[in-house]
Design a protein around this nucleic acid. Structure first.
Lengths: 338, 338
DNA sequence: CTGAAAGCGCTAACAT
DNA sequence: ATGTTAGCGCTTTCAG
């Protein structure tokens, strides 16, 4: 067990050069002769030297760390986002400092910690208090971009899929499939995503002269979604199609219909979700859903954030369209095209 | 947009005290008079001062950051572990720097980065190259504990559930249920967890005078598991029970049996998994499985790691027993007790 | 191109 | 209890 106490001075001594020479060799855009570079590299190797990122961060003012704030990791969408995020960030030489937001809104604490760790930027992924965090950090001069959540108005950077368009597409699909008694279990109506999907959906239905028979706020909770499904479909007057605000709630709705109410999907009721998480493709659900282009969304998020960090670019608000992924959980219109 | 350039000097000036006084007020175990504390707190508040963690880390040699290395986030078990980990660590004043291990084993790179960020400790969660990373970091003097993976021999710290016992319990359960043609789709046989579950299972079966009809390595892959299921159950000579090495593979096996082969679970084939991720409780699967006590495992992991970091305690290797969670995917023995 | 010197913001002896 | 003084390990002018 040898502690990692090798400093640039040790390397300098062994290499017979100055400490700053060592620094230069390890600093990407610095000048050093081939000879020096060689000696230093060798000495460093021999001693197992590795620049101390903290020291570097202190002096440059850049930690190369991005604070990522996420809320629920139970919905498969977020772990996946995290995975992509890490990959994209690593490629650019950044790392993720993880913050789990408890729902009991300790926003202040999180902001404090983010700042004290000198993160270069922040990504909030679908966190309820995104706006709050974002505003405070942005005010403090730390670039923030909100992933998969936005605000109605404002200038904060954000990346979402085109939720309005997505909702509209689902409406078009369902109405074209001949459904007329259509309900919606929305995503949390306190979130832009939930709201937009709902609005797009209602709007799209209107184009077909259809009014939703019910709209209930599922609040992104599987339990709530199941309760709503039970209520909606427990009577003979049930809807023949339900658009559910995200896949995880859709799974809960399907389970409720099939195993509790003894209904068939899609024969009795068509179900459409939103996200296209991997589970949606599992045969047990085979869920028709709007695919959130997570990869593109992540790429855009990282792009925008780093542009802001490295070039001081302006905040952007991006919407990426997500196609309908047609599977077996909803009756298919003949010759349907989005 | 005001940059966060407030230092302890600024606060000191405004408060009319020395810079070290400010430092003391913000250092947990330091002495300062109520008066000083008061003045400083006020001044800090007014200026929006927040100690620079990096500077502190540099001097104390403690970053209060734990590097967490994970591989697949698609298996729900890991995101959950991550969530618990964050909670437990946060409680002790630590944060998570996240590292995704690509399978193409860039171990060296990850180790480099972990060290250069001066993490105080490392947790590797079910990463294939756990051993490799662990050894190298441990050699460098950074405490490591392996979560949900271990090594046959050695002294590196590790926390797992009692996989041997778990496998044995499943064997007992299945045999008691009257099954005699029992197969096993194992976890990756290159991992201690996969191996132990398999061994315990085979051993437990032996107690009942039963020999498994087949053992195949599912390598923790859903695709592989499905392929194996297809092969195993595609003939009339199929097993009447399958123990699958983790829940996610079990879901794939069930889907294959039900939707591809037209078989019923548990009527035709009983399925038992391992992990008890939330999905296992969803009605569509209702999976009987060994529950990995993730919360206890995480608590123990954090405990061991911090004991090593803060008190220089020795490495521990802990196994936590996991009970069988009986649901509907496997025929139930009458009056069964573990 | 290279070395010397000045810090980054803070903690930890050391005196007082 | 408080101020003074050294640095932590590194990057970055600044001369040479």
């Amino acid at each position: 067990m040898m502690a990692d106490k090798v400093t640039s001075f040790d390397v300098a001594r062994l290499a017979g050069v100055s400490q700053s020479a060592v620094s230069r060799v390890f600093t990407p855009g610095a000048s050093a002769s081939a000879a020096t570079r060689d000696k230093v590299t060798k000495a460093a190797e021999e001693l197992g030297y590795r620049p101390n990122t903290l020291a570097r961060a202190m002096i440059t003012g850049k930690s190369r760390v991005i604070g990522v704030v996420v809320a629920y990791l139970e919905n498969q969408f977020y772990p996946m986002a995290l995975e992509y995020l890490d990959r994209a960030l690593k490629e650019r030489g950044y790392h993720i400092l993880l913050f789990m937001a408890q729902n009991d809104g300790n926003v202040g604490q999180i902001v404090e910690e983010l700042m004290s760790y000198q993160v270069d930027g922040i990504i909030t992924a679908s966190v309820d208090m995104s706006n709050d965090i974002a505003k405070r950090c942005d005010d403090a001069g730390i670039p923030v971009v909100m992933f998969n959540r936005g605000q109605e108005t404002g200038t904060l950077a954000q990346v979402t899929s085109n939720n309005i368009e997505g909702g509209r597409t689902v409406a078009h699909f369902l109405a074209s499939g001949g459904h007329r008694k259509i309900a919606h279990v929305s995503g949390w109506q306190g979130s832009s995503t939930g709201l937009d999907r709902m609005r797009g959906f209602v709007d799209g239905l209107k184009d077909h002269g259809v009014e939703p028979v019910a709209i209930e706020d599922g609040r992104y909770s599987q339990d709530d979604a199941a309760i709503i499904a039970r209520k909606l479909c427990g009577t003979s007057d049930r809807p023949d199609a339900i658009f559910v605000g995200n896949d995880h709630m859709a799974f809960a709705v399907m389970d409720c219909l099939r195993f509790e109410l003894g209904l068939s999907v899609p024969e009795d009721v068509s179900i459409v979700g939103y996200d296209d998480v991997p589970i949606a493709a599992w045969p047990a659900y085979d869920l028709t859903t709007i695919r959130q282009p997570i990869n593109k969304m992540v790429t855009a998020t990282v792009e925008i954030l780093l542009a802001r960090i490295e070039q001081g670019a302006a905040s952007e608000r991006i919407q990426i369209p997500g196609p309908l992924k047609i599977r077996g959980s909803a009756r298919k219109p003949k010759g349907f095209s989005t």
